[in-house]
């Protein structure tokens, strides 16, 4: 049952599990499709995830719960609805001296 030709960016794969490992630089992601769960290899992580490189595998990990897209777990680039982005963090209220921009959903300096 070991596939002769692997799909996409797999380095090794099998019929039932899909990718088991990825070609260099690609990210290993688990995808659930109904009852099945297979491994896939992507050049970048899906939205809501960030890439982490390990010696034997590159993986995608989830951004924080209040964050939609992020560089790393602690550096958000777009917050979920209801939160304002400030220095890579998602805040319910902007700190003093800053104002909440409801258009960009960011905390910005107050313009006098």
């Amino acid at each position: 049952n070991v596939s002769q030709g692997c799909q996409g960016g797999c380095a090794t794969c099998s019929d039932y599990n899909g990718c088991l490992s990825c070609k260099p630089r690609l990210f290993f992601v688990l995808e659930r499709i109904g009852m099945k769960q297979i491994g896939v290899c992507l050049s970048s992580c899906p939205s809501g995830y960030y890439g982490t490189r390990y010696p034997d595998i590159n993986k995608c990990a989830k951004c924080k719960a209040d964050c939609d897209t992020c560089f790393t777990r602690n550096f958000c680039t777009k917050c979920k609805s209801g939160f304002y982005l400030y220095s890579g963090k998602c805040l319910e209220k902007c700190p003093g001296g800053l104002e909440a921009n409801n258009h960009t959903m960011e905390c910005t300096s107050i313009v006098h």
């Binding site: 088991l20 688990l30 769960q37 491994g39």
Partner: peptide, 20 residues
């Protein structure tokens, strides 16, 4: 229970896929 497949690599502490 309902049958669900798990990829062998999903059963790792570092794995963060969606848990059913």
């Amino acid at each position: 229970g309902k049958l669900l497949q798990s990829h062998p690599l999903s059963l790792c502490n570092t794995s963060e896929d969606e848990h059913p």
